[in-house]
Simulated scan of single mutants.
Amino acid sequence: MIALVAAACIAVGACAVEDAAEKRGPSPRSEAPPTEAERRAARLLSLSNNSTLDAKTDPYDRAVLCTVAIEAVQQRLTEAIGMSAEQKQAMAAARGVYQRRAAAAATGARDIRADAERMRTENEDPNQMMRTGVACLRQLA
């Protein structure tokens, strides 16, 4: 299953960020360690830095948000470039992981479907949903 999730991550292109930096070669400042300001800027620009996801401290809310975000990633990729059956299967497997996590973390009278719809409404920015979905996929890789 990890291989399927990794394939989904690669389909999004999020895993290639480090490779691009390696291909460019050493930076002119490679001998000096980065400053705190440089580290902070790198964290802010990182695909794995996702304030929407980080704001969700409850495991249930995080799992529901990841389910919705991965669904949004799959929908946008399918519309933009299409996805192979293997890629769709990988996305479904990743969504399944988060759906199971949501079910396990649900307490009381929580309605996962209603909460997923609420998350879709609260997070209407498609670009932010893509970043959130990529962050969720990276957590599984």
Rank of each mutant, 00 (worst) to 15 (best):
S48A: 12
Q128Y: 03
R62W: 02
A102C: 09
D111C: 08
R120T: 12
K56G: 03
R40S: 06
R95I: 01
L65K: 04
R40Y: 04
Q128V: 00
V12P: 00
S30N: 11
D125I: 03
C66T: 08
C136E: 09
S30C: 13
E124K: 11
R24I: 01
L47I: 10
R62E: 08
D115R: 01
S27L: 15
A8L: 03
P59I: 10
E36Q: 09
A80W: 09
R76L: 09
L77A: 03
A103I: 06
A7C: 00
C15S: 15
A37L: 09
G13R: 12
P28K: 14
A8Y: 00
T132P: 02
A80P: 00
A14W: 04
T52I: 13
R39Q: 12
A116E: 05
N49P: 00
Y98N: 03
M130H: 08
Q74I: 01
V17A: 07
L137H: 02
P26W: 12
P26A: 15
A109P: 05
T107V: 13
V73A: 09
D54K: 13
V73T: 08
S27V: 12
L65M: 14
G108N: 10
R113H: 07
R138N: 09
R39D: 07
P28W: 06
A55Y: 07
L44Y: 04
E79V: 09
M91A: 01
P28G: 12
T107A: 14
S27A: 15
I112C: 02
V73K: 06
A69R: 07
S84A: 14
A94D: 00
M130Y: 10
R120I: 09
V12Q: 01
M129C: 02
